[in-house]
Design a protein around this nucleic acid. Structure first.
Lengths: 229, 229
DNA sequence: CGAAATCTTGATTGAATTCAATCTAAGTGG
DNA sequence: CCACTTAGATTGAATTCAATCAAGATTTCG
């Protein structure tokens, strides 16, 4: 198997000044910062995991492929999110920039050294646990929710993470579809029907700027979990 | 919200002799052993996580429910498997005995004390990572595989874990369906077609004893992941 | 400008669900 | 022991939700 190394496609550091600001710290933990153009790979599945990443600007998708090209996006990483953190030696996903993206890089080995400190070690565990929780909820969505419920859940998730009134979806309909286990046509139809129902409003043509007019009604489309067995 | 405590439905300890064997160790880590009858709850979603469990005999299902009763089984726990391990205070799944099941119980707090040791701490992380990996692969299955591919993947997973030539599926068709995001009828149809195709043979009426005649051909039904993006 | 990219919308198809009937094995109780 | 019920599974027919196929619209880009 041919495995590209991450170094092969590391872009240029952003600015010297940015390095200058924190150069002392950088030398210790191996911190640096890089820009990835839209749709470029940050790391590939099965590649050795050399760095851990944090999104500074932009958005990233992590996905797995089947041999015939079917794709399942496991997560979108937005500003502030950490991704590419592995316990083993290999990345278990491919990560790509959804739009032009700036990421902080930290050498994995420096993190592993730091993990001797119980505080760091506990943080590593709780980060992994958060990823696990997300995956668990996503299994429920993928296995048991309808198209409308999936899209509603997606919008609420994004809205929740955006914080602001207006929410921008940096990813394409195809990305959304591959995240929700649908086709892009179905995603488009559901979004259209939600717009017609007055639940949301598109602000631009490619309709990646969205205003939720009625979170309450949207939430009605997404059946919450139940505690009673 | 009404939350039952685990203590409410703790069954009797199995035998005094079993306790006698390891009583010194038991007192330290709070180890004990219990039997759960078929289809009884071991712990419920959102309940405080007091114990961590290991299957000694039998099988367990972990699942989430939607408010209208749709169920997604996230994992089956077979002999040797550890389940109910939480980082936070609450269980994120309901766990039930698939068949009569004996489980070892360890107090969570004793585990947390032990986690001060780096070895234990690292084990905790790698256990969580294994769960995460399983969930990630299952997302791909749920979101992007067809019915035949799902059932094939399930059989291969069970076969791999069983080790032996003959494999016994302790869970019902409904359990399998809720694990794969299908209906029980679809699972039944696919299994029938695989039997007719000669890939497997049922040994009993309820067809939970299965022999895989042709792992190779079964694997052809399950498209493996691809590394190339 | 023409070409490519992205999205929407319509028509049709199809895979899996739903509904329904049947089968076998395993209780259950008189 | 045997009729009767129940549980689990299979199978067939009908239905449906989402996928597929196809066309067209708007924007972006070379």
């Amino acid at each position: 198997m041919f495995v590209r190394t991450t170094a092969d496609r590391l872009p240029q550091p952003n600015t010297l000044s940015e390095f200058g600001l924190t150069s002392a710290f950088n030398r210790i933990v191996g911190l640096s910062e890089f820009t990835y153009r839209k749709d470029t790979e940050i790391f590939g599945e099965k590649e050795p995991a050399v760095y851990v990443y944090q999104v500074k600007h932009g958005a990233v998708r992590s996905y797995k492929l089947l041999s015939d090209g079917r794709r399942q996006i496991a997560a979108f990483h937005l500003v502030g999110d950490i991704f590419g953190l592995e316990n083993g030696d290999e990345h278990r996903f491919t990560a790509e920039a959804v739009v032009e993206t700036v990421a902080r890089l930290v050498k994995r080995e420096s993190l592993e050294l730091a993990a001797r400190a119980p505080v760091i070690s506990r943080n590593l565990l709780s980060m992994t646990t958060r990823n696990l929780e997300h995956a668990e909820n996503h299994m429920l969505l993928l296995g048991r929710k309808t198209a409308v419920e999936k899209v509603a859940a997606f919008l609420l998730e994004m809205d929740c993470r955006a914080g602001a009134d207006k929410m921008s979806l940096p990813m394409s309909r195809l990305d959304i579809a591959d995240y929700l286990g649908l086709t892009l046509e179905t995603v488009s139809r559901v979004l259209s029907s939600l717009r017609k129902a007055g639940v949301l409003t598109f602000l631009d043509h490619y309709q990646r700027e969205i205003v939720l007019n009625d979170r309450r009604r949207l939430a009605d489309f997404d059946p919450q979990g139940s505690v009673q067995p």
